[in-house]
């Protein structure tokens, strides 16, 4: 009897669907724009509303998928490739010049960074920048995630985003990934 009830509860839990936040109220978008960065613009804290919303840009598959589309639409590929880098740094290796925190990535996209990263603050809305930042973070994530963006239609030039990859690259091996920076971050 208990087994049946547990099974039923599990089946019902399967009915729960992830909710899509399609329209961000302008005041919420305003609040989400107010991140607190450290003075050196590396690391910091997202605004409180971000946690109240339940970290929507890391845990929500729809936002990650939209981020993936924005990655192509806003030309990120032309410098960063599919994450393996090019004239811009790679994300796949999990080596973050400005730290792995989402706020740093958000700030990099919104305000730009020295040596060629342009600012997108005037080209994208706050919502879009968060979506894109969330997606970029999954590319070089240290841990596998339950939320993942949708699959590629075109040829996949790299592993899927929700695997736990970058950590492996930092394992001590015969040849470290970053010769100049050492095998561990």
């Amino acid at each position: 009897m208990a087994g049946v009830l547990i099974g039923l509860a599990a089946a019902l839990a399967g009915c729960q669907r992830e909710e899509r936040q399609l329209r961000l109220d302008p005041p919420v978008a305003d609040a989400l724009d107010k991140i607190a960065l450290m003075p050196n613009r590396i690391g910091g804290a997202p605004p409180e509303v971000y946690f109240k919303l339940g970290k929507p840009y890391e845990a929500n598959a729809y936002n990650l998928s939209q981020g993936k589309r924005l990655y192509t639409w806003f030309g990120c590929k032309s410098c960063h490739g599919d994450g393996q880098g090019g004239s811009g740094p790679a994300f796949l290796d999990g080596w973050w010049y400005y730290g792995p925190e989402l706020v740093s990535i958000f700030a990099s996209i919104r305000d730009g960074r020295p040596h060629g990263m342009p600012m997108f603050g005037d080209k994208m809305t706050t919502d879009q920048i968060w979506q894109l930042a969330g997606y970029v973070q999954t590319i070089g994530s240290y841990e596998g995630q339950t939320a993942a963006p949708s699959r590629n239609d075109e040829k996949q030039a790299r592993p899927a985003e929700n695997r736990a990859p970058a950590k492996l690259l930092f394992d001590e091996g015969p040849s470290p990934v970053h010769l100049d920076q050492g095998p561990t971050p």
Partner: peptide
């Protein structure tokens, strides 16, 4: 002014 209320889910963002 509000593309996401008129056609929810479309790719035109709400630009303040």
């Amino acid at each position: 002014a509000d593309p996401q209320t008129i056609k929810p889910g479309n790719n035109m963002p709400l630009v303040p």
